[in-house]
């Protein structure tokens, strides 16, 4: 590990905000040595409670995050926020606007807000978001709020990162059947119907409750559906109370954490294997020979893959 990263790791241990920010940048950029730095801080993680906040664009995730941060601060807890917005698939640039909704809270003592661009990752988070959670955890944050990009129905990456996931819905997004579809509706530990002062909020609550009641998994816990108006603060106290109750309940379930760690190891392994494959096969003459054979229909891609994997596993 080079000196710069070493200094950042030490700085984090000393509570330096600048080091925290600097290490996040290195990890996000995958600067050489980042893995070593992550290894160094890992032993200091495990203290923070991680809350995922997801839902469609414009549902009020950032405003809700702002309110939650404030309430947690009032309880004497320190808060880290990771707010993810999409990168442009065309320019690679991004406009990160989550701070707009949290400008006052972000400057308060004990709060650290980091905006991240997806940088091409699918699933509602950026590739490094999970690592950034750990860095904030090691820094000593009590709570880490992970706000996803505005998601549709299938982006559930946040569930791998958070102890508890809030799915934020709003009135006016379509009829009841939208709620019964698969994907993000299945990952909620708490449902929040935000903008509850708008007409139709009660029917959204009913639709979600109806969906939940149809669950065939009888052993499953009851999932709360709460109404909030994030802009005014209505319902936030109830939401935070429920949050604490649910966290207490999930604490007793060691299974989820074990599953997450296993899943993380497999995920990291997949990425590493993929990297090694590219390293071996990019600009490989043998592969070109195989391609020629396939083009001539003397061979098929399936057999080539079989051959290569057999060769690796030996």
């Amino acid at each position: 590990m080079d000196n710069e990263l070493e200094n950042l790791v030490n700085g984090i241990a000393d509570g330096s905000v600048r080091s925290l920010a600097g290490m996040i940048t290195c990890v996000e950029n995958r600067t050489t040595g980042w893995l070593e730095a992550m290894k160094k801080i890992y032993s200091k993680t495990g203290h923070a409670r991680v809350i995922g906040i997801t839902g469609p664009p414009g549902a009020g995730k950032s405003t809700l995050t702002d309110r939650l941060t404030r309430t947690l601060l009032d309880k004497g807890l320190s808060v880290g926020v990771i707010a993810v917005d999409p990168s442009s698939p065309f320019s690679g640039g991004a406009l990160l606007g989550d701070r707009l909704r949290m400008k006052d809270v972000s400057a308060l003592e004990g709060v650290f807000v980091r905006s991240m661009a997806t940088r091409g990752a699918l699933g509602g988070l950026s590739l490094a978001a999970r690592d950034v959670v750990k860095i904030m955890d090691a820094f000593g944050k009590d709570f880490i709020l992970v706000e996803t990009v505005g998601v549709g129905q299938d982006e559930i990456e946040v569930v791998k990162t958070a102890d508890l996931v809030m799915v934020v819905c709003v009135p006016g997004m379509g009829d009841g059947i939208q709620a019964i579809k698969a994907g993000i509706m299945e990952i909620a530990d708490i449902f929040v119907v935000n903008k509850a002062d708008i007409e139709g909020a009660d029917s959204v609550v009913k639709d979600i409750q109806a969906m939940l009641s149809m669950s065939t998994d009888k052993g499953k816990k009851t999932i709360q559906v709460l109404k909030t108006v994030a802009t005014s603060g209505d319902g936030i106290t109830e939401l935070v109370d429920t949050l604490f109750q649910e966290l207490e309940a999930t604490k007793k379930k060691a299974g989820r954490q074990r599953d997450r760690i296993k899943e993380e190891i497999i995920g990291l392994l997949e990425r590493e294997v993929s990297r090694l494959i590219h390293k071996r096969l990019d600009h490989n003459d043998k592969l070109d020979v195989s391609v020629d054979k396939i083009l001539a229909r003397e061979c098929d891609p399936y057999s080539v893959v079989q051959e290569i994997t057999d060769d690796y596993i030996k």
Partner: peptide, 26 residues
């Protein structure tokens, strides 16, 4: 953004303190 930069936009009426803290955190 269109030129490939990651732009953090903080909106109107910011104090110097908020801007400095945002710059450091980001």
């Amino acid at each position: 953004r269109d030129l490939g930069f990651e732009v953090i936009y903080t909106g109107l009426r910011q104090s110097a303190d908020i801007i400095a803290k945002a710059a450091i955190q980001e």
